[in-house]
């Protein structure tokens, strides 16, 4: 179990540390230690040293991870809800409605959506809420396609027709027969959406368009690290490495889940 789901274990450890560490560390993520600017690792009370403003790296990593994962989960949920609603409607109603709804999705797929999100961020200011609504709205497309495909193939299956002949009303057919049968696949794609969202959020934050100071996220930490990398490479390598580990683990678990259900 532990070796098979090694990636999942790593994720759980990272989440656990990100949640618990701030409770035990003597420094908070935005507290400046004037006596220890650019402190090296393992110096005094700063296990991973401090950045160029004298803020504790470990505290900032923990807080950044928290924010990044929180935004990711919220946005993935938005994408799940929008995707299921859109995809299930298109698939269930079918015909021209389906055609039009899916053309719309195809159209959006072809757009440089990231730029629209960037514009949104610029226009409406930079709040966390907007960040994940924005991201969720981009990432629902794949979910909608997957759900629609599933519903389309289920809809013609004889057991759905048998349920209709048994007098089951359409809404109950959707709730009792269709949704339970797409839950697994939807869950797998939810898992795969999370790393996507982490990527997008970090990207926006890296450009200075995502999460704003004093809050921090892994993207912001990477950006700060990149700006200061000639002086303090750890500042780049730590958040960058952590981000990659999170992305890889989430992707592996998500793909395993997807292969299991399809």
């Amino acid at each position: 179990m532990v070796t098979r789901h090694f990636p999942l274990v790593i994720i759980l450890v990272i989440v656990g540390l990100a949640l618990l560490l701030p409770l035990f560390l003597p420094w908070t993520y935005d507290q400046i230690d004037w006596n220890a600017v650019r402190a090296p690792a393992f110096s005094s009370s700063h296990i991973l040293g401090t950045d160029e403003l004298g803020r504790d790296r470990l505290a900032r990593l923990a807080s950044g991870t928290q924010i990044t994962l929180m935004v990711a989960m919220a946005a993935a949920l938005v994408s799940l809800l929008v995707g299921i609603a859109w995809g299930a409607t298109a698939g269930w109603v079918g015909g021209r409605v389906d055609e039009a709804m899916m053309r719309f999705v195809d159209g959006l797929y072809a757009l440089p959506f990231m730029f629209i999100v960037i514009l949104l961020m610029v226009v409406f200011g930079r709040s966390i809420l907007l960040v994940f609504i924005g991201i969720g709205l981009v990432e629902w497309l794949t979910m909608a396609r997957v759900v629609r495909g599933q519903v389309m193939s289920l809809k013609e299956r004889p057991f759905i027709l048998a349920a209709e002949a048994a007098g089951t009303p359409p809404l109950m057919i959707v709730i009792r027969h269709i949704l339970p049968n797409i839950a697994g696949v939807a869950l797998a794609y939810l898992m795969l959406t999370v790393p996507q969202v982490v990527m997008v959020e970090s990207f926006l934050s890296f450009l200075g368009l995502g999460v704003q100071e004093p809050l921090t996220s892994l993207g912001i930490l990477v950006k700060e690290g990149a700006d200061d990398m000639d002086m303090a490479p750890l500042g780049l390598l730590l958040p960058g490495g952590l981000l990659v580990v999170i992305l890889v683990c989430l992707t592996i678990e998500g793909e395993r889940l997807r292969d299991h259900f399809s």
Partner: peptide
């Protein structure tokens, strides 16, 4: 009441 060709697909697997 109907009965279909593919018996396995006629029953909700869940």
């Amino acid at each position: 009441q109907p009965v279909f060709q593919d018996p396995i697909a006629s029953l909700n697997p869940q």
